[in-house]
């Protein structure tokens, strides 16, 4: 018995050491960014974990002004917000029809859409397509691209939730004289609320963090979202770690706040696809 409890103790100790080691690997870079964001210009020649001699909050206002962050914040909000709204609105309707019809043709169409989670983007011909449609360097172009990129996962995620709503409900509603549109709007959609929020939060997060589409398709700096803005800021102010760290904090703050508020939906949504049962 003594042997077992000693063994158990070693096991628990090892687990805790491992967990703290791993967490420290995340905490140290995080602390580094936070501490350096408040330092004075001369203090950040070398990056270290010393506390700032004086906490300089004005770094943030300097960055907002020099990096034109207000503008890119609103751009990011527009692209991620509008992109998420249309993706989830139309994606939920599509998932509903795919899940309910279950015919050979609709099954194939569902597979066709879900295959989008895997297939890579050909940016060369996408550029040609965007030029042909007159969508380069437009906000609408970026929003529609985000919709095209996020639709497969959104449909996949909501499809699973629709399957859990009993079909008997639809039958009862139709017998009672409900039209197909009213059935969806009044009965199905309200029951999909948590699925729609989950899909929406994940979609927003992905759009906010996206970098390649604006890099390829937005040429004028007043249209840049935050990711592209910070990339250019980094190039301009390399070695001014204090300003770069403040910019990093401001760029990540919206997603971190979203993560803290919607942890349940984010983790739940990302695991829903992977773990069943």
């Amino acid at each position: 018995m003594v042997y077992t409890s000693k063994n158990k103790f070693v096991q628990i100790l090892l687990k805790n050491v491992l967990a703290w080691f791993a967490s420290m690997l995340v905490i140290i870079p995080l602390l580094l960014v936070i501490l350096n964001a408040f330092k004075a210009d001369g203090e950040t020649l070398n990056m270290n974990l010393q506390l700032p001699k004086e906490w300089i909050v004005s770094n943030f206002s300097t960055v907002i002004e020099k990096g034109k962050l207000m503008r890119s914040f609103f751009n990011s909000m527009l692209y991620a917000g509008a992109g998420t709204l249309i993706t989830v609105f139309f994606g939920a309707m599509a998932a509903y029809v795919f899940s309910r019809r279950r015919s050979k043709g609709m099954g194939a169409l569902y597979m066709y859409v879900v295959l989008g989670m895997v297939i890579p983007v050909n940016y060369v011909t996408l550029t040609k397509t965007m030029i042909t449609l007159g969508l380069t360097n437009t906000s609408l172009g970026i929003i529609l691209l985000y919709m095209a990129m996020q639709t497969p996962f959104t449909v996949f995620l909501i499809y699973g939730f629709v399957s859990k709503i009993p079909v008997e409900l639809d039958e009862a509603a139709i017998i009672d004289g409900c039209s197909p549109l009213a059935l969806y709007v009044r009965i199905i959609f309200p029951m999909l609320k948590s699925a729609v929020i989950t899909a929406g939060v994940l979609c927003f997060l992905n759009c906010w963090n996206e970098f390649m589409m604006p890099l390829y398709f937005l040429h004028s700096s007043e249209k840049w979202p935050m990711t592209l803005a910070i990339y250019n800021f980094f190039g301009q102010y390399e070695m001014k770690w204090n300003l770069i760290c403040s910019d990093v904090i401001l760029t990540c703050a919206p997603v971190l706040i979203l993560y803290l508020l919607c942890q349940k939906y984010i983790v739940g949504g990302q695991t829903a696809g992977a773990v069943k049962g």
């Binding site: 139309f90 599509a94 859409v113 989008g116 449609l133 529609l144 095209a148 639709t151 497969p152």
Partner: peptide, 9 residues
């Protein structure tokens, strides 16, 4: 959904 996905992806 299918249309936008088809055209842009």
């Amino acid at each position: 959904s299918v249309l936008i996905y088809t055209v842009l992806s």
